[in-house]
């Protein structure tokens, strides 16, 4: 079946942009042309697949909104309405102190290593690694452990994979996540690096980004390797995490970050 041959017409038909006369002809052809019908079925399934991505993005966005809500500081300042100058000055000084205190609290809540990590890190969602053929999947026990948040069991499982095994890169990627959750930062770094070295398109960029976040969680943002990787990602226009890396870079160099430190 040549998908490209029918792609344009199928898209017009599905999106409702096909002129009525052509639409009628298209529907008549559907009755006799198996390839056209198959392409239409594929296209519809493709729309469902894309919708899964749209949902995942919105879910992730809402998690960010929820995190921002939790982190937002109460910025209320009491009114000063006292006549003598020294009282006004004292009140002003108090306000400055209160604001200063809030600033320190706010910056440490939003710009500390913990906050930067929590704001950027996403646990791999179960739905992204489970499949209909789960029982045939060699990584399945590890996935079940991850899904149940049994990080130690997941770490132990994925650690057993050797480089010559099939799906080693994927196992290393998930090992990195399990170790990261357990605070085993050195192991997490090793695992993400092993995954990166395998250079598999599906995992390489994600592993690079999570390696960066591991450094953040470990409080090693001054490490030369971290800086080098951060620069490489934020300057790579084609990298899937370029925008995230730029935002992280901006936060690491910000005034608030210095206060948080």
């Amino acid at each position: 079946m040549d998908v490209e041959r029918y792609m344009e017409r199928v898209e017009q038909y599905t999106l409702g942009t096909m002129p009525p006369a052509e639409r009628a002809a298209f529907e008549a052809e559907l009755a006799t042309n198996t390839e056209l019908r198959d392409t239409l079925d594929l296209y519809r399934l493709g729309q469902e697949v894309i919708e899964q991505g749209v949902e995942a993005s919105l879910r992730s966005k809402m998690q960010g909104w929820a995190a921002a809500e939790t982190a937002a500081p109460p910025m209320t300042v009491s009114r000063v309405n006292l006549r003598p100058m020294w009282i006004r000055l004292a009140a002003a000084a108090s306000v400055v102190l209160v604001l200063g205190w809030f600033s320190v609290q706010w910056s440490s809540r939003n710009y500390s290593n913990e906050a930067l990590f929590a704001g950027q890190y996403a646990t791999p969602e179960a739905s992204t690694f489970r499949s209909g053929t789960a029982m045939e999947n060699p990584l399945e026990p590890g996935f079940i452990a991850l899904e149940d948040k049994q990080w130690k069991a997941a770490e132990d499982f994925f650690k057993k994979f050797s480089p010559d095994q099939e799906r080693y890169a994927e196992a290393q990627y998930y090992l990195g996540h399990a170790a990261l959750q357990l605070g085993h930062y050195d192991l997490a770094k090793d695992a993400f690096q092993s995954c990166i070295r395998k250079n598999e398109v599906k995992f390489s960029e994600k592993a690079q980004w999570n390696l960066l976040l591991t450094y953040v969680a470990a409080g090693e943002t001054d490490d030369a390797d971290f800086r080098q990787l951060l620069d490489a990602i934020r300057n790579d226009q084609g990298h899937s995490y370029q925008r995230e890396a730029q935002a992280l870079y901006g936060k690491l160099g910000s005034f608030w970050r210095r206060i948080a430190e």
Partner: peptide, 13 residues
């Protein structure tokens, strides 16, 4: 949902 998500992941970010 799992199958659809796997298909999506195969596509690349």
């Amino acid at each position: 949902k799992g199958v659809l998500n796997r298909l999506l992941k195969e596509l690349g970010e």
